[in-house]
Every structure is written in structure tokens, then in C-alpha cells.
Design a protein around this nucleic acid. Structure first.
Lengths: 182, 182
DNA sequence: GCTGCGCATTAACCCGGGTTAACGCCAATG
DNA sequence: CATTGGCGTTAACCCGGGTTAATGCGCAGC
């Protein structure tokens, strides 16, 4: 069976207005979600209330907390809609056990997980080896659409810096760009 | 088929002295390696020659560059032995296609990838939300053995800071620990 | 149309980490 | 035994980002 076929057969469609949570850090949520329409943000909340953004989820992408859905612990992060959104929710265990019966589905699962792993590795490398300014410019190059749909403070929290720091980086970058006529 | 069975049947055993590379950033290496004995370090080399450490690989763990083995690009990082080591090398494509024929193997692959994904997510969270000092203390708590086997400069590069900065953190931590009688 | 709120900008000040360099230690090598 | 080189420590200086606060803007709600 195809991956999308599985999701369409087993998923419950959920519509959410902007600013609504899909799940919250600490919840026990065994579901995984496919985003059909809209835009989500996945973020961590530190003990002192500081927010840092793990990722933005675009149409067609998958989201769910492995810690909760797979390991049966609690969600390690929260997911909230930034725009009115529609998700398909399905049970992780249903997918997991279907993979034990259906080798095509297992193959699709492996491809998804390989792609996911590479994405996480790339982000790990960026955080480990590149400066905030470098990451900012790389993000503009890689996902310019994002800047149309996401507040600057969320971009900053995604880059791992404060909105104030991002504003300064933009100031520096823009000055340089003007200076270079670029 | 079991995962280890697959590796034992298809793997070539390779013995390496300390300081030897398993593969280098930029290589086209389609293999994946299981570490039998020894200790490996996976690291990135930036354009200017700066080294940052992606991970340490302990006995029983898996290592390989998804970019090269799966995506057929070049390795995004290098792997070198820190101690005399023995690895089992096997072809990623052989595993990948065996997963299409053998549903048990596919299941094992899925478990491995889920665990790997969670590990990468945890590291991403640490880099994004925690200070270098916090990460240092967490590492002591989580992997005290590592400090017996790895030079302090490599610990520093793993934490994403310079050896000098780590020395300062230790100085601060130790002073605090003595002050607290802890 | 007014009010209030959240956001982006800017400035001032602080602090942690980078850089460079000096020093001492130890292990490997001759 | 003397030399060499890598490592960890410490100090001095610089810089990027955090924090706080003031300002101005745009938008939602009344």
C-alpha cells in the first residue's frame, strides 16, 4: 500500500483556525499528522518560558512527536497553527503495525524516515558549524516563501537567536548589500 | 531476517589503528559501518579548516553518511578512529533492497531509523535551547565514560565551542562545585 | 476614529565565547 | 637524557548576541 493511501484511509481530517494547538509539549499524543493546508510551527518551551522553534511545517509535510507517538513518553515539543490549517490525523501504532504486514508501506516508511533523518542531520550541522548570520542568509536562499508567511520574531527563534539580534543582523546585512550594490 | 544477521552475512570486517579514517568528507562511500570494537569520531570540516564534532560512535553503533550511501552525493562529514577499531562494512543499497524483499529486516530498519531520528532530534534540541555549559554538564551526567576515552579538545568541539572555552567552563563549574561543597 | 497591543527597530550595557599568546606538563622520539 | 610537539590552562582583548527599555508603526476591537 502507498503511504498517502494509508493516510487517506486511516486519517481523520481536522480543521483548525490560526493560533490553535495541534498538541502541546507534555501531552500524551500518539498521533501523527499530515498537513493538508496551512502552516504549522513546532517549538520547544524551556523551563523559564523561553520559546525556540524546532521547525515550520509546510503543506504536505508530516509532524508528530516520536517521543510520544513511538516511545509512549510525552511530547517533547508543541505544535501550533500559524494560519488556518487542515491536518489529517492518524494513529502512529496503526501505521507502525501496518508496516509489519505490508512491505510496500514499510518501504515507504523507510524512505520517509531516511529523508527525515537527513533533514535533522542538516539542521544539526547548521547549528553546530554556522553562525546565526550565515544561517539567516541560507534560510533566505533556501525558503524565501517563509518570510512572506512567518513573523520575523519566529524566524529569529528558528535561527536560535532573539528578535532583537535578528533585527541587528538584518541591519548589518542590508548595509553590506547596499555597500556592495548587491 | 534479523538486522545483525544481515550485517554478519554481508559485512566485511575491517581493522583500523587509531587515527585512521573510515571515510572522509567529500568521498563517495556507499557503505554503512557497524563498530565492533574501538571508538570513532564523526566530524565536519568547515571551509576555513575549523573542525566540529557531529558525534562519537561507540561499540555496537552504526555510522555512515546518508548523503553518500543513500542519496549518492558525497559524504557530508568524515569519520576517524580515536582508538584501534574494528568495523563491519556493508553496502547500503544491499540493505536497502533486502528491506524490499524481507519484511522483518524492513521492520528492523524502521526501528533503527526511528531511534536514529530521535537521537538527532535530541541533539538538535540541545543545540537550539541549551547553553554550552548546560550541555557540558548534561554530557557528564549522560556519558561519563566518554571523558575517559576522549581528549578534552574533542569534547569541546562536540559541544560546539573551542577547547579554551571549555577550559573556562570547567574552571567556573569547579569553583561553583567547591563553593557549594557539591 | 480612537485605543491598545503586538511587532520591528534602535540604543546602551553586560556577558559568554572566539582568538591569540604564553606557560607548564607529559609522552613519544631521538 | 634532552628534545619536540600536542594538550590543557590562564590571561587579555574583541565581538556577537542577550537583556532591557524607549520609540514608532500597523492592525484589531470598540
Amino acid at each position: 500500500m502507498d503511504f498517502l493511501t494509508f493516510v487517506e484511509r486511516n486519517g481523520r481530517r481536522i480543521a483548525l483556525p490560526a493560533g490553535e494547538h495541534v498538541f502541546r509539549q507534555g501531552d500524551e499524543d500518539r498521533s501523527v499528522y499530515v498537513l493538508e493546508q496551512g502552516l504549522l510551527k513546532a517549538y520547544y518551551l524551556s523551563g523559564d518560558g523561553r520559546e525556540t522553534i524546532k521547525s515550520f511545517i509546510l503543506e504536505g509535510e508530516l509532524i508528530g512527536s516520536l517521543a510520544s507517538a513511538w516511545r509512549k513518553e510525552t511530547c517533547s515539543f508543541s505544535v501550533v497553527t500559524l494560519e488556518p490549517s487542515s491536518v489529517l490525523a492518524f494513529d502512529f501504532d496503526a501505521l507502525h503495525s501496518a508496516c509489519r504486514r505490508d512491505i510496500d508501506l514499510a518501504g515507504a516508511m523507510i524512505e520517509h524516515l531516511l529523508a527525515f533523518s537527513m533533514k535533522k542531520e542538516r539542521r544539526e550541522r547548521e547549528l553546530l558549524t554556522e553562525s546565526a548570520e550565515h544561517r539567516y542568509r541560507a534560510l533566505i536562499a533556501a525558503s524565501p516563501e517563509l518570510f512572506e508567511r512567518v513573523r520575523q520574531k519566529d524566524i529569529a527563534r528558528y535561527l536560535g537567536i532573539t528578535p532583537v539580534a535578528l533585527s541587528r543582523i538584518r541591519q548589518r546585512s542590508d548595509a553590506r548589500a547596499v555597500g556592495e550594490g548587491d
